[in-house]
């Protein structure tokens, strides 16, 4: 029996395209009212999972339950989806785009009119009401894309990389709005993103996927504590061909948690990294290798991700 606290539950959700396994036995439970972050590199299976959760894709195996009910029998207006791509009609105005989707969800006329006004105001598009979507900037289109997912007041909102390609100002507007959707309006939000900061800042819990599999699921703080503890030292050598040697050297040192080569630099994660930094530098220089730059920073969600997936999100 499904616990009613969970609005979405996936059971052994699997999608196969011929021999390619896009999603492999995904088991998730998403709580009502939480912002659920979905992280994973390109091709990890996030969007495929989401498409199955909203009924756009048929799973090869497993099922999706929305408040305990099979997805195919759930009323369509329960979920609102803001797709990863800008899915708007360029030949329609902002108002017409939202109104069309509202009509498709059978939102009554007066409610629709008010809803459009409110959404355009909240997403700072009021002055663009009668402007064709084709004439909007990228950020405005992204906000319009979100407004179209919300016009029918869905209980569950799926945001597939909502801030991709946004400038910092637009991103902040969007983040504030997503935050208010969850905390003030009580919506359950599923958020996929490539931006670690976004996931860290907005998500109550984060699931990290790779190769179609769920690798880990926890709050951002717990993930940072449990996985990838300590600080990170980034070392850039004058000759990157020596990176392998340095990686081996660092791994042989005591008190080192993890060493990886990422984007031409050697990343060393260690507890109390500040006190170990001078020893690291000395060992490298003893091998006759020149260091161009070193830096030390706190462990981030990206480090957690790299620890789990072995590669950067934008690779």
């Amino acid at each position: 029996m499904t616990d009613i606290e969970y609005v979405i539950e996936t059971q052994d959700l699997t999608k196969k395209y011929n021999s390619f396994l896009a999603v492999d036995d995904l088991n998730l439970r998403i709580k009502k009212g939480e912002v659920f972050g979905f992280l994973g590199p390109n091709g990890a299976g996030k969007t495929t999972s989401i498409k199955m959760m909203v009924g756009l894709l048929k799973p090869t195996k497993g099922r999706v339950l929305i408040e305990g009910e099979e997805i195919k029998s759930v009323e369509k207006g329960k979920i609102g989806v803001c797709p990863q791509d800008l899915v708007i009609w360029d030949g329609l105005t902002c108002e017409e785009n939202i109104a069309l989707i509202g009509d498709m969800y059978e939102v009554p006329g007066n409610v629709l009119k008010e809803g459009i006004k409110q959404l355009l105001r909240d997403l700072i598009l009021s002055d663009k009401t009668k402007i064709l979507a084709s004439q909007l900037s990228g950020g405005m289109k992204r906000r319009l894309n979100l407004a179209m997912a919300l016009i029918h007041e869905p209980e569950i909102v799926v945001l597939d990389e909502p801030s991709a390609g946004l400038d910092p100002q637009s991103r902040l507007v969007l983040w504030d709005y997503i935050h208010s959707l969850s905390k003030e309006k009580g919506k359950t939000i599923i958020l996929t993103t490539h931006l670690m900061e976004e996931a860290d800042r907005l998500s109550d819990r984060i699931a990290i996927m790779d190769h179609g599999k769920l690798l880990v699921l926890d709050t951002p703080e717990s993930l940072k504590k449990k996985i990838g503890r300590g600080d990170v030292v980034e070392i850039q050598l004058s000759n990157p061909e020596m990176n392998d040697k340095v990686v081996s050297l660092m791994r042989s040192m005591e008190g080192i948690e993890e060493v990886k080569e990422i984007k031409g630099k050697v990343n060393v994660r260690a507890l109390d990294a500040v006190s170990k930094l001078s020893g690291m530098i000395r060992s490298i220089e003893k091998m006759g290798i020149n260091i161009v730059d070193t830096s030390i920073r706190r462990n981030t969600l990206e480090d957690v991700f790299i620890h789990l997936t072995g590669r950067g999100l934008r690779e």
Binding site: G55, L56, K76, G77, I79, V81, P83, V87, M104, M148
Partner: peptide, 13 residues
């Protein structure tokens, strides 16, 4: 191709 049909498919249309 633009995904608008997919957007319509998840509505009550």
């Amino acid at each position: 191709a633009h995904g608008t049909l997919e957007r319509l498919k998840i509505t009550k249309m």
